[in-house]
Write a protein that binds this DNA or RNA. Structure first.
Lengths: 151, 151
DNA sequence: GACATATAGTTAGTTATGCAACTAATATAA
DNA sequence: TTATATTAGTTGCATAACTAACTATATGTC
């Protein structure tokens, strides 16, 4: 028995990730209340494009922790809403570079404000130190599971 | 500016819940490698039935943080695989009580072992104290978002 | 240059999610 | 006791996830 092992009764809530799910749902709700029709998944893609426009689909998938199939559909939907466009790379025609449209650009400010508001709602009465521990542990959990492949 | 506020660059990984998602995916993979055909979502329902059999769909939804529509479909799929059966309550015929079948019962031990194994993989080099902080903070985040309704 | 391999992205199939509108059964209230 | 409201569950619609199989382009080797 590793001394890190969770007791059975505690397993589920960790695996389920219900807290982070609740944060995501709240942000979605805050988007909707503000009249924004984008999903948080779509926002996660826009978020990375606002930081660096013209990424490939694969790179977007890496940065948002999605496989390429999921990335394809997400960008399909973003394209339908005319928030991004795909442009084939001149250097390598296998690659689609994804660019923000003029419709998407002004959404950055309002969605960031709503994300900050959501964070404030989520993190009431939680100290900076605790937040640091959580971020650090979750990152290490992620690294534990992605640094080496299973069998 | 609340002093709990995340800096923008840190927002996404928290909302995305990528660490808990990675744990869930690893557990799913461990199920598959062991020849088990159940999803982690299905397992989350079985998990609560192993603790207390014969719960109503609504109660199962509450315990697994799902709305009633999602619960309905999840139980549809569990019923298709003959892992649970629905029995209308004698007292109130609106209520379906969900019971484990003889096929589901022996899955408890092996899936618990796989869940423990997954936890051990996830929590390598993370101390008990850190785990306590994370559990505590995530619970408080969840409470912050569910204790009161939005507007 | 030709053939095998690797890479980027798409598509098909299945499961799961949320919201909103619906049915059926029960509880409340006039 | 009949009309109204509430509750448990289902269904329709849209988005999103993963796996596996596929296409098209690029690369590497002989």
């Amino acid at each position: 028995m590793s001394n890190n092992q969770f007791k059975r009764g505690e397993l589920y809530s960790v695996i389920n990730g219900m807290a982070t799910t609740a944060v995501a749902r709240r942000l979605q709700k805050n988007f909707r209340n503000a009249g924004l029709e984008i999903t948080i998944e779509q926002w996660s893609v826009l978020y990375h494009l606002w930081k660096e426009d013209g990424l490939s689909q694969l790179e977007l998938g890496n940065r948002t922790f999605r496989d390429k199939a999921s990335t394809t559909r997400l960008i399909d939907n973003l394209e339908k809403q005319e928030l991004v466009t795909r442009v084939a790379s001149k250097d390598d025609r296998r690659i689609n570079l994804v660019y923000l449209t003029d419709i998407a650009k002004p959404l950055q400010q309002i969605t960031y404000e709503l994300a900050n508001k959501t964070m404030n709602e989520s993190l009431q009465n939680i100290s900076k130190e605790e937040i640091e521990v959580v971020k650090n542990v979750l990152q290490r959990v992620y690294d534990n599971l992605t640094s080496k492949d299973l069998i």
